[in-house]
Each structure stands twice: as structure tokens, then as C-alpha cells.
Simulated assay, not measured.
Amino acid sequence: MKPTTIRSLKRVEDWREAYPIMHQLRTHLTEAMYMDLVAEAVNVDRYLLYALYEAEEIAAVVGFKEMTTLYNGRFIWVCDLITDKEKRSLGYGEKLLSFVHEYAREKKIKRVSLSSGLQRKDAHRFYEDKMGYGKTSYVFLKQVSD
């Protein structure tokens, strides 16, 4: 495995650099939509975006935020996690998710939660078998307007 580093993506230029990787997960987003949503999420929801770099090139991206609910108490919600399709199975997703786990421990947060699309069978195996996540619920969605 090549040397890697994990860096916070705080600048607009950083977000734009991460778009080609994030677009592999969020295929419905144009770059303009993505940029607007990241800006709002960062400013309103305390969304954090990090990238794992292989040399000086982004290989994987994770977006997450601290939340509080009655069900979980204080926890980290992983909104987005994607490894470049050309660099999968190299341990980069594991490194980024482990980074999120360590971030949670440093903040004295006991839980990390995420959802994954029903069609993403490989991701489900990764979360359950490799990372030790358990299924705790279904996520439901209702479109209420166009």
C-alpha cells in the first residue's frame, strides 16, 4: 500500500477537488449542486469533509457531522463515504472510517452511525464484516414535493 495522509477539506477549492470522487457516490449531483450543498452543510450543520490522499491525489472521501437524537444521544453520523472506483479494496475506506472512530473517541462520543443504500451489497459487507457495524433499523424516505 502506498503512503497515505488524511486531511480536512475546509476550502472551496478543496471541496471542488473532492467532487470527482464524491460524484461516484452522489451521481445525481452536478458540481454546482454539490458545491452549494457542501457549503450549506458546513455552515449550517457543522458537516466535516476529509479526504485520504495517496501521494497528492484524493483516493477516498468521508463527510460526517456530530448529532444528538433521543435514540442515539450524542453520536457521529457518517453522511458520505466513498473510495475512488480505481482504488477500492486497498484499505482506504477502512482507514477513513477508523479515522472517524478516532475522532469520535477524542470528542468522547460513543457511537458512529450511517446508512447505506439497499443496492450497495459490497458496502454492507464492508460495514458489517470488516468494520463491525450492526444493522439497527431501516431508513425510510418520502418525497413530499418536486
Rank of each mutant, 00 (worst) to 15 (best):
K2C: 13
P3R: 11
T4K: 01
T4S: 15
T4R: 00
T4D: 11
I6A: 12
R7E: 13
L9H: 02
L9N: 06
K10E: 15
R11H: 12
E13F: 00
E13S: 11
E13D: 14
D14H: 00
W15P: 00
R16C: 07
Y19I: 00
Y19A: 03
P20R: 04
I21H: 05
I21M: 02
I21D: 00
M22F: 14
Q24F: 03
Q24V: 01
R26I: 06
R26W: 13
T27Y: 04
T27S: 15
H28L: 10
L29F: 12
T30P: 03
E31L: 09
E31T: 03
A32E: 10
M33A: 15
M33V: 11
M33R: 12
Y34H: 04
Y34S: 03
L37C: 14
L37A: 15
V38P: 01
A41F: 06
A41Q: 08
V42R: 00
D45Y: 11
Y50R: 09
Y50W: 03
L52V: 10
E54R: 07
A55V: 09
A55H: 14
E56W: 02
I58A: 12
A60D: 02
A60E: 01
A60Y: 03
G63I: 02
K65W: 11
T68P: 08
T68F: 15
T69A: 08
T69H: 08
N72M: 11
G73M: 05
R74G: 06
R74D: 10
F75P: 01
I76C: 05
I76G: 02
I76H: 06
V78R: 00
V78S: 01
C79I: 10
D80C: 04
L81A: 07
T83R: 02
T83N: 03
K85R: 15
K85L: 14
R88S: 03
S89M: 11
Y92N: 04
Y92K: 00
Y92G: 00
G93K: 01
E94P: 08
V100S: 03
H101F: 05
Y103H: 14
Y103A: 07
R105C: 10
K107E: 11
K108P: 09
I109F: 06
K110F: 05
R111L: 10
R111H: 11
R111W: 12
V112Q: 01
S113W: 04
L114R: 00
S115N: 14
S115K: 08
S116T: 13
S116C: 12
G117N: 10
G117S: 10
L118Q: 14
Q119H: 13
R120G: 14
R120W: 07
R120H: 12
K121I: 11
D122N: 13
A123Q: 05
A123I: 05
H124K: 15
R125H: 12
K130S: 13
K130V: 10
K130N: 13
M131R: 01
M131K: 00
G132H: 02
G132C: 04
K135Y: 07
V139Q: 12
V139S: 15
V139A: 15
F140T: 05
L141F: 13
L141S: 15
K142D: 05
Q143M: 14
Q143F: 07
S145V: 09
